[in-house]
Design a protein around this nucleic acid. Structure first.
Lengths: 360, 360
DNA sequence: ATGAAAGCGCTAACAA
DNA sequence: TTGTTAGCGCTTTCAT
């Protein structure tokens, strides 16, 4: 049978309170008494019951992380950053992978209300915007990645915000392509409703506008509604991207550059390109968002706009833990991190494609 | 303030027991009474407290998953399989990423003893062998991936086992290379102590033995002890593999094939190969273990021995949930899944390298 | 069909 | 420095 603190107390001839003090190393306990209790605990193999402690303290030292996919190196790296900090602070991570399913996301947010989670970090689209807003206003400790709530502008809540400078990222990537002569730049992204994508797209528009040009909306493709979201297929997201890319290239052969906002789509895009004989980078330039270990080893090595994802994760976790442990903390200003452009070999000037034209 | 079931009961003019019955939809409750209680719950915004429920029921509907890295597509896919099943059964996932740190692993195992976890799935090396064994003998619900306990052979415990046929995998990959004329096959693996590696190595030996040959132990390299395990460096594991590979190629230039048991090492291996001018596959053949979405897009496309990782994950989660929900369940037989060899372009016969020799 | 009441195992304020 | 005691909020027999 399980041994309880009460039994330890009886056996050691002390009160439960004293046992509790030695378990948690707080309060004053006489050295000899402590030794006696510890001896008893070791003898009977006492293990404290965590759920009882959770109930008594009203805390669980568990944090929820909500992401939309495990296939994206972005989320992996983010999770690593978060977990490294949490572990260091003695917190645990409950992982919720929504796979773009709002229902799953809501179920996990419910755990926050139910007191099973001390706080939550979210890095998802904004389908659950209203729910999140409600939670924030009820002062649950929450940290949002790459997301803003205009409604909260003048409110002092416990919510925290960490972001990459995605506007800057979109702006600079686009400027780079425009300078290389690209005018028909397609974008493939993963979730229509995410603020991350909006930021990048805004940056993109700005780069166009600087040249008196405009984004062509028909070249913006979202793959948020997968053909078969429930299949166990490996590389499911690549499969969606594949058909979308094929369609794009067919209807818009004038595309000379593709921006990939969501890396799980990369395989499908590359396969489609290959099948229709559009070589990278000579026929089409390709740029990914966020770096990942294998990027330099792809064929061709992928040029990417990187974000310090690991640091973003760390910052988010630190912020959340602060907010959990200090209920009065109010940090309204988002933490913003600068991206870095990493040029490899998946982009080429349009002139390479039409050398004759360029020579004129 | 938080609303409790007690307050709901008072407001609805019933007892807590009845409220509990409507929350959990069990026991008999008169339709009109149920409606009244539900109305009150909605009005006051009642949310049940999960930690209290956990304490009262002695269960948390939370399962721990212990893996050693998030950088390996193997663990990612495994996690997806596990999570898809858990979510479907109403369980949550507490993720423990040990990064080969035994201390972290032990801390998470402790959560099982402390009643915070209903069960645990482990897919790690066997540094914690004794601890695991103790837990199993105390009848905690546990499922092990790619691991066996000879000690448990004749005991009826609650432990479950799911494995890929790694012996078969090692055997066939090696046979394939031997048939292509390779005799100096190096192996780079991630954790010296893992049974998965042992199984593969045994298969390998068998393939050698069939030709009257033997494995050359000096060509087996483990990268379990990283130069800097705590750095936040992206692609840390690739960095370890890089230096190990460099050293290997320098001391053993006769190597014509490399088997990679742990994919996060791939980047470092490829870079080292590139730097010393050993072209894949003409100068060195490369085979990876387990497929992943980007494998066909590497330069060159990677030949791999794949495992049905997603299915392994699903099977493990199903088994664990069974064991949690039926304390009498005793399934000693491991579930074994067959691997599949996927040939792409990272292997070439040795004859390609020494055509003159082959022509003799 | 509903209620009373005894836990579940620990924490923490207060008293001593 | 230690003990007393009243919770934490829910579940679950056992009556009724």
């Amino acid at each position: 049978m399980r041994v309880t603190a009460k039994q330890v107390a009886e056996k050691a001839g002390v009160s439960m309170a004293t046992v509790s003090r030695v378990i948690n190393r707080n309060g004053y306990v006489d050295a000899s008494v402590r030794a006696r209790i510890e001896k008893v605990m070791a003898e009977v193999g006492y293990v404290p019951n965590r759920t009882a402690k959770n109930l008594a303290t009203g805390r669980t030292r568990t944090v929820g992380l909500i992401i939309t996919s495990l296939q994206s190196p972005y989320f992996i790296r983010l999770t690593e950053g978060i977990q490294d900090v949490l572990e260091n602070k003695g917190y645990h991570l409950l992982l919720c992978n929504t796979k773009f399913n709002t229902k799953i996301e809501l179920e996990n947010l419910q755990l926050l209300r139910e007191g099973m989670l001390d706080g939550v970090i979210t890095s998802t689209g904004n389908l659950t915007h209203e729910v999140m807003l409600g939670l924030v206003r009820q002062n649950y400790p929450m940290v949002f990645i790459n997301r803003v709530f205009d409604e909260l502008k003048d409110e002092a809540t416990r919510a925290g915000f960490v972001m990459g400078d995605l506007h800057y990222a979109g702006l600079n990537v686009t400027r780079y392509l425009l300078e290389q002569g690209h005018r028909n730049i397609a974008v493939l992204y993963g979730a229509a409703n995410s603020t991350s994508n909006q930021f990048r797209l805004e940056g993109m528009s700005q780069a166009y506008a600087a040249l008196g040009l405009r984004v062509r909306p028909e070249l913006l493709r979202c793959v948020a509604n997968p053909p078969d979201p429930s299949s166990g297929l490996n590389d499911k997201e690549g499969a969606w991207a594949y058909s979308e890319t094929l369609e794009l290239l067919q209807t818009h052969p004038e595309v000379t550059a593709i921006l990939v906002f969501y890396h799980p789509m990369l395989t499908g895009i590359m396969q489609a390109l290959r099948e229709v004989g559009r070589n990278v980078p000579d026929s089409v330039s390709l740029i990914g968002f966020d770096d990942f270990p294998l990027a330099p080893y792809l064929d061709p090595p992928l040029t990417v706009m990187d974000q310090p994802v690991y640091e973003i994760g760390r910052a988010a976790a630190r912020l959340l833990v602060h907010k959990i442990e200090d209920a009065t903390l109010r940090v309204a200003e988002p933490i913003v991190m600068k991206p870095e452009f990493i040029i490899r070999r998946s982009c080429a000037p349009v002139a390479n494609r039409y050398p004759a034209l360029a020579a004129e």
